[in-house]
């Protein structure tokens, strides 16, 4: 998609060049001049290291001696000999598969409510958005850890209702749900986007639906959801990518170990430990590129399927 845009842009600029005024030329030059810092950053700090890591993914590199080419050995080891990786991939996928839909549903539900409120909506919008701003911070991870420890607030509250499960932090089966709750709590960003999307839906559609005798549920299913599908698609894609990137909070909550039982050893944490603690940079790069491929495939599938369920207002079909 972006490629097409770039190609289009090039064609336009080429055909326009002969007729360009002197002013336009100078402005183009100035534009590029202003882009220089960004371009240096992009090639030097993003693209260069990325290509380097692609090369390293096929080597054995301990940071001390030069990388040795090993072909696909790192990838073979990932899938045949490394149980920790399989566990890590599994918990990460669980987090993405359960956390993302729950977060989006929460965001949509709150957005729907806020869309109806007339008074004080500004206040509630800020209040619900605030966790997104601080949710990825170190302090919140520390608070989360304390909240879900034995005799912490969550344990105490649950015991009040007769549920005695103790702390979640060290429990193999509760660690991922705890992380999902932390993710869901930061629903503010998608919520604001949903809210903007809801405001865009023309009121006459609801009026027409009401005339046809549609209730609240039917209106939601047949007007809100289709009209919002573009925004849902955008949020879904963004949140899936975000979910794969969770690092800081699992690092802090598990003290960098990924325990209990590897349940907090999310893929980002695992590749960090392999690279920087174990000095297996080649192996870590292989994991990183695998994540890139998986995210790219998921995005491609989403884009491919979007034709069938994403509608844009006024689009001729």
């Amino acid at each position: 998609m972006t490629e097409r845009a770039v190609r289009l842009g090039r064609r336009v600029s080429r055909s326009a060049r002969p007729h360009m005024s002197a002013l336009r030329k100078r402005e183009t030059k100035a534009g590029y001049a202003f882009l220089v810092p960004w371009l240096i950053g992009f090639f030097g700090l993003t693209l260069g290291p990325m290509l380097m890591s692609l090369y390293l993914a096929f080597t054995r590199y301990d940071l001390f001696s030069p990388p040795q080419w090993v072909g696909f050995a790192n990838f073979v080891r990932l899938f045949t000999a490394d149980k920790v990786f399989l566990r890590s991939a599994s918990v990460t996928l669980q987090y993405v598969a359960f956390g993302t839909p729950i977060k989006l549903m929460a965001a949509l539900a709150v957005a729907l409510m806020l869309n109806r409120i007339r008074r004080g909506s500004g206040f509630f919008r800020s209040a619900f958005y605030a966790p997104s701003l601080i949710g990825a911070s170190v302090s919140i991870a520390i608070v989360w850890r304390a909240m879900f420890s034995t005799n912490g607030p969550v344990d105490t509250a649950l015991s009040f209702f007769g549920i005695n499960i103790g702390g979640w932090v060290g429990k193999v089966n509760l660690a991922v749900p705890m992380m999902i709750l932390l993710g869901v709590w930061q629903f503010g960003a998608p919520m604001v986007i949903f809210l903007a999307g809801l405001k865009q839906i023309p009121q006459e559609l609801y009026e027409a639906a009401e005339m046809d005798g549609a209730g609240v549920v039917a209106q939601f299913r047949h007007v809100t959801v289709p009209m919002l599908s573009g925004v849902i698609f955008f949020n879904l894609l963004l949140e899936i990518v975000h979910a794969f990137q969770v690092f800081g909070s699992v690092f802090i909550i598990s003290n960098g170990t990924g325990s209990p039982g590897g349940r907090l050893n999310f893929i980002t944490l695992y590749l960090y430990k392999r690279g920087f603690a174990d000095g297996q940079m080649g192996y870590a790069s292989a994991i990183a590129w695998l994540v890139v491929v998986v995210v790219a495939v998921i995005a491609a599938v989403l884009f491919k399927s979007s034709g069938r369920w994403v509608h844009y207002y006024g689009e001729d079909r």
Partner: peptide
């Protein structure tokens, strides 16, 4: 590489303690 081996030992014995 002793550090890597020691880390592995710790994480496996933690897993043993957790029964996983």
């Amino acid at each position: 590489g002793y550090g890597t081996i020691a880390t592995k030992y710790l994480s496996l014995s933690t897993d043993l303690g957790l029964g996983v």
